[in-house]
Amino acid sequence: MIKSVQNNARALVVGALMLAGTVLSSAQAEEISYNHASMLAGSCFNCHGTDGRYGEDSIPSIAGQPAGVLLAQLIAFKRDETPNTTVMNRIAKGYTEAELEALANYFASIRD
């Protein structure tokens, strides 16, 4: 079940990436600092582990994934376009698209 949720999310990536292009340009104007992004990301660690590295069956690790994939997923959550989501839609709605982009960049930048 969980796998199919992720697959669903991935299937949306292509479409959402196109949207992400427009988001990126608007987000750049907002200039989210690294410290600001770290603080936003801190809230994600509570379920995804420190730096998004903690993954298990029910909640995936998000560290080191491509920024475009992460952003597309986050925007799909925010827009209620991901079927079968439980809580991520409620959480993603709390962030602007620029903040979601900063989060996607933050987690994409995590390397072992």
Partner: peptide, 9 residues
């Protein structure tokens, strides 16, 4: 999953 992750964090 949340409990395990927040305790790790």
């Amino acid at each position: 999953g949340w409990y395990n992750a927040i305790c790790q964090d």
